[in-house]
Design a protein around this nucleic acid. Sequence first.
DNA 1: CCAAAAGTGTTTTCCGTACACCCATGC
DNA 2: GCATGGGTGTACGGAAAACACTTTTGG
Lengths: 224, 224
Amino acid sequence: MPGSADRSATNSAAPAIAVVVVIFTVVDGDLQALLIHRSGEPHRGLWAIPGGRLNAGEQLVEAARRKLVDETGVRDVFLEQLYTFDDLDAVTPGGSLAVTYFALVDHQRVRLASRTDWQPAWFSMNELPELAFRNRDVLTYALERLRNKLQYSNVAYSLLPGRFTLSQLQRVHESILDRQLDKRNFRKRMLSLELIEATDERQAEGAGRPALLYRFTSHEPISI
Amino acid sequence: MPGSADRSATNSAAPAIAVVVVIFTVVDGDLQALLIHRSGEPHRGLWAIPGGRLNAGEQLVEAARRKLVDETGVRDVFLEQLYTFDDLDAVTPGGSLAVTYFALVDHQRVRLASRTDWQPAWFSMNELPELAFRNRDVLTYALERLRNKLQYSNVAYSLLPGRFTLSQLQRVHESILDRQLDKRNFRKRMLSLELIEATDERQAEGAGRPALLYRFTSHEPISI
DNA sequence: CCAAAAGTGTTTTCCGTACACCCATGC
DNA sequence: GCATGGGTGTACGGAAAACACTTTTGG
């Protein structure tokens, strides 16, 4: 339900609004978030969720997309608004408000920005470093939302290639939920949701029987 | 997870941010929203969700509370952030962003603001008037969130007096969900959630056997 | 005594969970 | 032929849904 109108007549006194994007990926069965090493005050030397100021005339979701592309090179992925914080200490400076988003990316497609300063890096959600501001709370909330959406929506499409095996999908779910799932029950539920469909291709994973490849029936968001 | 720090050092170039509050109540089995009759441009003569600018140094939730008290005189009720819109046409003017909240009030406690201009009035969610901006979408989304939260949380406490009968609670649920519920199943579920508990008082409703009065065990939010 | 509202149990259905073996391929 | 990963069915338990009658009061 985000906005669409494009009024160029924005206030000359531009609001200081930060847009912050929690970027998740799954690597080798591990859910990871992208963090930036702060090389400026405050909280120099700590890690923070990527973000920046909303440009004049820019829409929120555009700013979030821009940030995502800047950091990972990835576009056209799941990206959803999370929450708006007004506590400066909560998120990042440079804004009287911080609008947070969260995104999911297939790490195969990612090309991290390489800078000498403000370096990005992936961190396991199970071994987070010391975080700037109250970014840990933001990550915790993002993870909660992700776990909820995973149950009934197609968000996982963003974490996988276009074609994937059910085992790959299951490993993604297990990484996010941080627990093992039963293979038969998982398959039953996934297929009954009708979010995915089999293709007629197969893929071998090392030794062993080749697996059927599936695809999501749609990449459209299920709700808002 | 809303913020808490109180930095007075806000930017001199104050951001033009609107805070908008969807206020729901239930009257005679009918879910209603409070709307304001616009007597200024744009969209003069249409109805709009109450809202106003965020004051310098003011927190979002404080602004939402202020707006709620201004319009209804009610405080200490369920109030939660909904979504942040950047589309000027989506919500209300005077802000490059509109942070929306939603609140639930017991209409018995409400004393509507009486003004000669910008008059507030309740409208049934089933018979909404022509709305300014894209306020209909905001109401639709607020209703969806309310319906979800109703299932597993204690939000309904805000729509009822401190003591209430199970029949009253059921009518509130039915109004919000817009369908009839089975009395026995409803009671079983409500009691099993352990969100409410019986008092030792009874209340007669016209003729008929007096009903036990219940109360919510807590008014604390269940999540976020 | 009758109208009105409160209160109460049982059966069925559906979904989530637990659980173990055979199949196809690479080496 | 054996190691590796893919693929399948059934039984149980708990929650939601369907469903009708008795109890207590006011008039």
